[in-house]
Amino acid sequence: MLKPSISSISFHIPKNNYSTSFIQNNNKDRVNKIISKTGINKKFSSSENEYASDLAIVAAKKLIIKNNVNKKTIDMIIFCSQSPDYLIPGSSGKIQDKIFGKDNNVAAIDLSLGCSGFVYSLLLAKSLILGDDFKKVLILTADTYSKFIDKNNISVSSIFGDAASATLVEGLDIKDNEILKFDLGTDGSGIKDLFLPNSGSVKDLEKNNNLYMNGINLFSFTLKIVPQSIDNVLKKNNLLIDDIDYFIFHQANKYMLSALQEKLEISSEKFIIDTENYGNTTSSTIPITLYSKIKEGIIKEGDKILFCGFGVGLSWASTIIRVSKNLVDSINT
């Protein structure tokens, strides 16, 4: 039986300067304090007529061209985003059209998840390949939260940046499993701790139309759930915390990640905090961080990486992967 493997990753960042120090001109002391605590300043936003689907299309094309992927061999697109072009229909159809054109023999679905979305997508891709219906699944993650944010709300505008990633998962005839077992969960009682009012059928009359975040409840949720999920995923895979080479969590912000690192007692060498270049790009932070750390030569072939995505939903998902030679070669080519 073919085993699922992450064989290539690419990503795309839009061009507009959306750094916190650029969009916040007032109260410099407070702005600098927030930048120092969150570890986020530099980030980017999409243009007015540039949507998450457009960013995902660029990321996908980069991956296909760089790795000489025959588009006809891709069986399925998973588009993970909470910034759809329309409520009806999903955006994966537009992506199929722009990338595959008349080659319409490709399945396409939208997945509405944020910070846990990449790991969820990985589980779907793995399951579809193991189910023997598909051999190549293209995961696309993208969000343009900048379109939903009131720039004057510094607690939200200082965190999020726009981005997209593309990850090719394919079934290969390999000896060992490279995408190991998962731990996932949901706590819908926190649905309004991070949400966009009036964005669907419900009319939230008491709220404006900007992204709302209850940072305290998100922090509380994270401190409670992430250590449990890490414990669960290690047990499911019969591994100990010391067996993991690197921990790549959703790059929410430095403050939250540092609190988790301290709570989990993981060394700074193994616990990756990489919020400085693009900010919190929701479902794209994990693939972008993995790509960057392989490119920098820190993560190498065979390393065991523990992913944990957590946030909006409230939702969480953890898994462990072994980095393949194909992925390292693809990124370093």
Partner: peptide, 8 residues
């Protein structure tokens, strides 16, 4: 607000 996080 960051102090609230710190307290937590």
């Amino acid at each position: 607000s960051l102090s609230n996080m710190g307290l937590l």
